[in-house]
Design a protein around this nucleic acid. Structure first.
Lengths: 245, 245
DNA sequence: AAGTGGTCTAGACCACCAT
DNA sequence: TGGTGGTCTAGACCACTTA
């Protein structure tokens, strides 16, 4: 039952505990939304004091991997609408309330990874990928055009039917059906102009300025799981970034 | 010497300690780059255990207000080039190394706050403000056009001479000369097009797409201290945002 | 060698939640 | 009522820095 902690010379004990916990999380030892064993039990299992165990979990909480709920337990962070809006969706109206987007899937194709895509996804050029195109609307107006690239290997049976049948966020689908928990994203933004196709879909004129966002989504161990290019019509919306909070 | 801790019913002790520490920081009890008293001393002063004191400081570290250096002490976070690049400067080359910007001040004027500016700065409409225009270059090419709005009250003797004579970042100037430590910024981005003036200064054609960044900078207690509008030529550079790391 | 922050422990008690 | 996470303590020892 007890896991032996091979105390190397360098790493602090709580980092070792965190590493083992992260490993268990990545292996799916506990399912989406499920509770971990109590802190007392985990401390026993790793043979450390409760303070050390808590320090390990503190970091997992800070990284968004797990969530503590006093009196109830510690749970795998689950991808609901709240988490999406709070952590991963950064487009807000210029004035007015933050809105939940409505998604329409325009295309679902299978293809091969280009060299640059492969590098970002940590796979080999030419590996099988899924390409998805979504149009997101905010308050009945199309605002965001998304192009997703997913490694086929991570999403073995994903089909257009499964994708469009979901009744929750796409990251919730990744998590519940494929055991992939998106923890962190890295985004690069630039200004560009609408080509004919984007202009038509977003309802702007060709050549209109658009915000381009290139996102990489990561799971445990900083493993990349999704590439996403978004084109955003920022006439009535903005990208919101709160740094250091 | 000892500060009495009025333990209200609700707030945890370490939050109280943090509040008192933040207050001391905001009052400038310790100067820029200076060391705080040791943890042992602070624990005595507040009449709490070292664990509780450390938990308070943990949060200040997480917020970027102070920095711990093992064997040396805990210091007020100071605004050097490193911190600027790491926390507050988000423009990176599309490919290649991150570069340190060169700043040229184009204009320095005194004026009155417009209603919207006043609201964002937490001052009254019509209050005195300073307006500064900077052109930032990366690798000999102008890339960013900044327009800053500062409440005159916070920067009483700031002049063009003082501004341009500095040999460090502008946030370093805020900190050392005016005791204002910028801890956090909030940014809103959109795509726009270059007007005649911006086009000329940035060396792009009129109507070229530009990235517009509207920043509010905050110090202790989330008090706003600076408004900044940036226009960025993103043909060779991008805005980088790492979320949840 | 002395002083600083960093780790780890063992235990008490509190606040919250389900039953 | 029993179990969970949250707070707080007191002390030992380690790692690092400076003198």
């Amino acid at each position: 039952m007890n896991q032996v902690l091979d105390r190397g010379i360098a790493a602090p004990l709580y980092k070792e505990v965190k590493r083992l916990l992260t490993h268990s999380l990545a292996q799916g030892e506990w399912g989406a939304g499920e509770a971990l064993p109590s802190e007392t039990q985990l401390a026993k299992r790793f043979g450390v004091s409760i303070g050390t165990l808590r320090k390990a979990i503190d970091e997992l909480v800070a990284e968004g991997a797990v969530v503590r709920r006093q009196g109830r337990g510690t749970f795998i962070a689950s991808h609901g609408a709240t988490r999406l809006m709070f952590h991963f969706f950064h487009i807000v109206p210029h004035d007015g309330e933050k809105q939940y987007p409505r998604t329409a899937t325009l295309a679902f194709r299978r293809g091969r990874a280009a060299a640059m895509e492969a590098a970002k996804l940590g796979i080999a050029a030419g590996d099988a990928v899924l390409r998805i195109r979504n149009l997101l609307s905010l308050g009945s107006k199309p605002v965001i055009l998304d192009e997703l690239v997913l490694p086929q290997r991570l999403f073995p049976d994903l089909s257009e039917k499964i994708l469009t049948a979901r009744d929750n966020t796409i990251y919730h689908l990744y998590q519940t059906r494929y055991g992939i928990n998106v923890l962190r994203t890295s985004e690069r933004l630039r200004a560009t102009v609408a080509d004919v196709e984007a202009a038509q879909l977003l309802g702007v004129r060709k050549g209109a300025p658009l915000l381009e966002i290139n996102r990489v989504a990561y799971t445990y161990h900083d493993a990349p799981v999704e590439l996403r290019r978004s084109l955003v019509d920022t006439t009535e919306h903005e990208y919101f970034s709160d740094i250091g909070k």
